[in-house]
Design a protein around this nucleic acid. Structure first.
Length: 812
RNA sequence: GCGGAUGUGGUGAAAUUGGUAUACACGCCAGACUUAGGAUCUGGUGCUUCACAGCGUGGAGGUUCGAGUCCUCUCAUCCGCACCA
């Protein structure tokens, strides 16, 4: 009978389902593994990236199950988000109906891959039961002042008609639709991630060697810690009057306190309150005011590309140490969101300041020795023109200036972060409602816990114009949870990244408790951290930073006891075709359904893991898929060679050379499997080893050796190609070889004779076969005899014998 | 600009501590079986050369008996951040 993948695969998928084969046990005395692949967004169909992601995770889960671990390997749906609303706008579909029907379809697709997910722990983040607990966390965070509402300048995507967090802006464009992001001032809800900056940074050390260094570096840079001095510039009396005494001065932050004597001007961001006040009170020339407003309206990316531009504001401050009068400028390169939106400018030692000063003829005062006068000198050196600090190194001066400023109570040493607070409100319908109410008397009030979840209305019109919840005739009208008066419900919904920040804890919580709590501490203590997390590099900052932050917050709110959610992280490479990322618009996609229909799930999984190591990009190749299919067919065919239905006991010495060689290959693969499944994840090399073993088995005809070989190969490949291996294992060995680990027999590696390479001056010139017990002298003698041609008229000056490897003769 | 990676046959890729470079697979070539083959099987396949031999892991040096692997410099490609004061 020939290999029929669909028959075998359907059969086993049904059996696994009936057996409940992949449910984790409640027995918390067992050793555990929590293997998690990032959950999918229910877009409608699986793509090859999913297949790769879940094949990797499934291989690990199945491996550990066989090693007698209690394994949690769950799946669910990251189900809120824009595409559901876009489907509503474009195809007049109800977002809820669209989402859940996509989930139903994709669940079937996942099932057809034979993935060993728990069926009882599946949920969608749009399930009201999930929303309920998320809203509870949000309210708790509000009460602990970790969540607040404020009006700031935000990133606005006009296409998506919503605010975006900083992390969701890529090169000035929306991460979802690639539309250019605008700056806009509006109210929003924020989570105080800045409070956790130091911990988020420091704990990256706990993840060293467990997460890819690239991801750690990206997070480190994103958090962007820098140390320096914060101090104030006081406005001159004249300037103060001009500003109607509304301002005393402004604060600046610098990482170069050593250059403080070199300040020749200061610069404010266009959004700075002083600038706004000047414009508002018409204290600037009309065209200057006009220009500043223009800069304000520019997107960040436009500003970054623009030439340096700025204007003198007609006001001055006093240098805190020299008492000199310093002009105040507005400049397009000063960021409103960092360091208070104001900088001290030292053109002699900062490239940006130098460029600006040169353009506007501002004075340049050198305070560090060295370098070329025609460019900014940013290296180390000794101080000059710096009063009492002259002569000391600038490195020392950094500390001295901070000390001096602190003594004089003019400023303080401080730390600054690039990380901004996480803006979590979205002006969209298909998300979790933010559970707050606006009351004229009580202000912003959290909803009562017993009223949760606050769910979305079903009868909603989604047109793409404005916020559907806000446009809904009745939904937002409610009574104040505090005083009972008429009030307005918040119509913003939560960023979908909030849902994916705690789903790993929800999976770990026993489903029996899902009604009564959001996260069960005992369950989480047993299952977390996630032993292996697998997903795309695109979440290096976004999801992975938010989830780390959320974990620390939930810990501080006493929901859990852990510090980091994901112990180990594997970032899989992209799936490419013709050198490009598979995408619908390019039209180079491969449909997993068709692939499975043609070759079966096992071939799809085998190819995916064989063609490249998981962290690298995977180039799709149709004929290489055929190759994987061929291997499985060959494996299936060789079942006829098996003569024993248990693992035979073999007397190794009695075997012929090819049989010995075959056993060595089989056990090589077994030995390799431990490293691959537990550490390197180089499944491609394990598969290659199994192919070598099968090739070697083909060169001999001992039934016991065949039986042992197939017994072990099926065991090794079950995590990768579960259907065919289980089918054969059932038929040949009653699945005994899939239950436990198999011991490596060292005797099969012992050889009677060894082939050594003979090299002259490091170049391979021949080889010899020596007795396993041969002495060094015997080996050398044979080696010399084997390469007479290369020793003629030469003198051997050195002889090196590397056991089991080679002989090197150095001649002159 | 800053940070992180990656460069090995025609292709995807292997290669403990430095120890026979190119395992495994795809492709290609030849053959067998076949009415036929996009099926299956066997053999071959880094480059130059009739051969001897020489050259080969982006490039140039270095350390070493010996370097894909270690060190220095350099080039190319990819990714991330991007005026963070």
């Amino acid at each position: 009978m020939s290999y029929n993948p669909s028959e075998i695969e359907n059969k086993w998928q049904k059996i696994w389902e009936d057996e409940g084969a992949f449910e984790p046990l409640d027995d918390y005395s067992k050793k555990k593994k929590y293997i998690l692949s990032m959950f999918p967004f229910p877009s409608g169909r699986l793509h090859m990236g999913h297949v790769r992601n879940y094949s990797i995770g499934d291989a690990m889960a199945r491996y550990y199950r066989k090693q007698d671990y209690n394994v949690l390997h769950p799946i669910g749906w990251d189900a809120f988000g824009m595409p559901a609303e876009n489907a509503a706008i474009k195809h007049n579909r109800d977002p809820k109906e669209w989402t859940y029907s996509n989930i139903d379809y994709m669940r079937k697709e996942l099932n057809s891959l034979g993935l060993s997910f728990s069926k009882t722990r599946e949920f969608a983040t749009c399930d009201p039961l999930y929303t309920k607990w998320e809203q509870e966390f949000i309210i708790k965070m509000f009460k602990e002042k970790l969540l607040f509402r404020e009006s700031t300048i935000v990133n606005w995507c006009e296409d998506c008609h919503t605010v975006l967090a900083n992390e969701q802006v890529e090169e000035g464009c929306c991460w979802r639709c690639d539309n250019e992001v605008e700056q806009k001032e509006m109210d929003g809800y924020y989570l105080n991630i800045i409070k956790y900056s130091d911990e988020l940074l420091d704990d990256l050390k706990l993840l060293e060697d467990k997460w890819p260094s690239q991801v750690l570096t990206m997070q480190k840079n994103w958090i962007g810690k820098s140390q320096g001095l914060e101090f104030g510039f006081k406005l001159t009396n004249e300037s103060k009057e001009k500003l109607e005494n509304k301002f005393d001065g402004f604060e600046v932050f610098t990482t170069r306190p050593d250059t403080i004597y070199g300040v020749t001007y200061t610069a404010l961001a266009p959004e700075h309150p002083i600038v706004k006040s000047l414009i508002k009170n018409s204290l600037l020339d009309e065209d200057v005011a006009q220009k500043i407003t223009e800069i304000s309206n520019m997107s960040e990316i436009e500003r970054a590309k623009a030439d340096k531009e700025g204007y003198y504001l007609g006001i001055d401050v006093t240098h805190p140490l020299t008492g000199e009068s310093i002009p105040v400028w507005v400049a397009n390169f000063v960021l409103a969101s960092y360091g208070g939106g104001a900088v001290m400018s030292v053109p002699a030692h900062d490239e940006r300041d130098f460029e600006f000063a040169t353009k506007y003829n501002l004075p340049i005062k050198r305070v560090i020795e060295g370098g070329d006068e025609n460019i900014a000198y940013t290296n180390e050196g000794n101080l000059i023109n710096s009063s009492k600090l002259n002569g000391i190194s600038n490195i020392k001066a950094k500390i001295e200036v901070i000390k001096l400023m602190e003594e004089k109570k003019l400023g303080k040493g401080t730390t600054n972060f690039k990380l901004r607070n996480w803006g979590i409100s979205r002006q969209r319908y298909w998300g979790a409602p933010i559970p707050f109410v606006h009351c004229d008397d009580c202000g912003l009030v959290a909803e009562k816990t017993e009223n949760l979840p606050i769910t979305l209305p079903d009868d909603v019109e989604i047109t793409g114009e404005g916020n559907p919840l806000d446009n809904h005739p009745t939904w937002k009208h409610c009574s104040c949870p505090n005083c009972g008066k008429d009030a307005i419900r918040e119509t913003d919904t939560l960023d979908t990244f909030v849902q994916s920040s705690w789903y790993q804890f929800r999976y770990a919580t026993n489903p029996k408790k899902w009604e009564s709590c959001g996260i069960d501490k005992e369950d989480v203590n047993y299952w977390l951290g996630v032993d292996q997390y697998i997903g795309g590099i695109e979440h290096a900052i976004l999801h992975l930073l938010y989830a780390r932050f959320f974990t620390k917050v939930l810990r501080d709110l006493d929901y859990i006891n852990i510090d980091e959610p994901f112990e180990k992280l594997l970032t899989q490479g992209m799936v490419l075709k013709d050198g490009k990322k598979m995408s619908k618009s390019i039209g180079n996609t491969v449909d997993p359904d068709k692939l499975i229909a043609k070759y079966g799930a096992d071939t799809a999984r085998l190819f995916t893991l064989f063609a490249a190591p998981p962290t690298k990009e995977l180039e799709w190749n149709d004929s290489a898929v055929e190759g994987s299919f061929r291997f499985i067919k060959k494996l299936y065919d060789r079942k006829n060679k098996v003569t024993s239905n248990t693992l035979p006991i073999i007397e190794h010495k009695s075997l012929d050379k090819n049989a010995k060689e075959a056993r060595a290959k089989v056990y090589d693969a077994l030995k390799k499997s431990e490293v691959v499944y537990q550490n390197s994840f180089a499944f491609n090399t394990l598969i290659a080893s199994c192919m070598e073993a099968l090739n070697a088995l083909d060169k001999q005809d001992n039934g016991d050796v065949w039986s042992e070989g197939i017994y072990i190969i099926l065991h090794l490949l079950e995590p990768i190609i579960p259907h065919i291996t289980t089918e054969l294992s059932q038929e040949l060995f009653g699945r005994a070889n899939l239950k436990n680990s198999i011991k490596v027999l060292d005797e099969v590696f012992v050889k009677d004779s060894i082939v050594l390479a003979v090299s002259i001056n490091g170049k391979r010139r021949g080889e010899i076969e020596v007795d396993a017990g041969a002495s060094k002298d015997e080996i050398l003698e044979m080696a010399k005899a084997s390469v007479p041609k290369w020793l003629e008229d030469k003198k051997i000056v050195k002889e090196i014998v590397v056991p089991n490897k080679l002989v090197n003769l150095v001649v002159k």
